[in-house]
Amino acid sequence: MNELIDAHGRNVTYLRVSVTDRCNLSCRYCREKDMPFIPHESILRFEEMEDIIGLMAEMGVRKLRFTGGEPFVRKGFMDFLRRIRQKHPRLGLRITSNGTLLGPHIEALKELDAMMNISLDTLDRARFASITGKDLLPDVLENLRRMAALGVRLKVNTVAMRGQNDKELPALAALAMEHPLDVRFIEFMPMGEGSIWSESLFWPADEMLAAARRHWELIPCDEANRNAEERGPAKLWKLRDREGRLSAGRFGLISSVSHTFCTTCNRLRLTADGQIRTCLYDDGEWPVRDTLRTQGLEAVRRVILDAVASKPLGSEILARSKGPVAIKRMSAIGG
Rank of each mutant, 00 (worst) to 15 (best):
S130K: 13
R82H: 09
M189G: 14
G9K: 11
F46D: 11
E298W: 07
L209C: 04
T122Y: 08
L102W: 09
E107S: 14
L172F: 11
I219F: 04
S195C: 10
R242A: 15
I38E: 04
L101D: 12
R293E: 04
G323L: 12
E168D: 09
F202W: 05
L25P: 02
M189P: 08
I52E: 06
R16M: 07
G68I: 06
L318W: 07
A7M: 11
M78T: 14
G9C: 01
Q295E: 11
L4K: 04
V325W: 01
L81N: 04
R214C: 13
K63P: 03
W197L: 08
A148W: 01
Y29R: 11
T278S: 06
P180T: 02
I186G: 00
H215T: 07
R242N: 15
M330T: 14
G68A: 09
P324D: 09
E111K: 07
K311A: 01
M191Q: 07
D182F: 06
A57F: 01
L150N: 11
K328Y: 12
A171Y: 07
L218F: 06
V152I: 09
E199M: 10
L297Q: 02
N225K: 07
A234W: 02
T158I: 05
D306L: 12
R146C: 00
I196Y: 05
A149D: 13
Q86M: 14
S310Y: 01
K110D: 04
A211M: 08
R85Q: 11
Q86N: 14
R10E: 08
K75Y: 10
E168G: 06
G192E: 06
D206N: 03
S256Y: 00
M116C: 12
M78L: 15
R240L: 08
G274C: 08
K33I: 15
R162T: 00
T96R: 01
A299F: 07
L112A: 11
L144E: 08
R31K: 10
G99P: 00
D139Q: 15
A173Q: 06
D282C: 10
P39A: 02
G163D: 00
L268H: 01
L102H: 05
C262P: 03
E316A: 13
E243D: 15
R65Q: 10
L236E: 11
D124G: 00
I52Q: 02
G103Y: 09
R85E: 08
G151H: 05
I53Q: 04
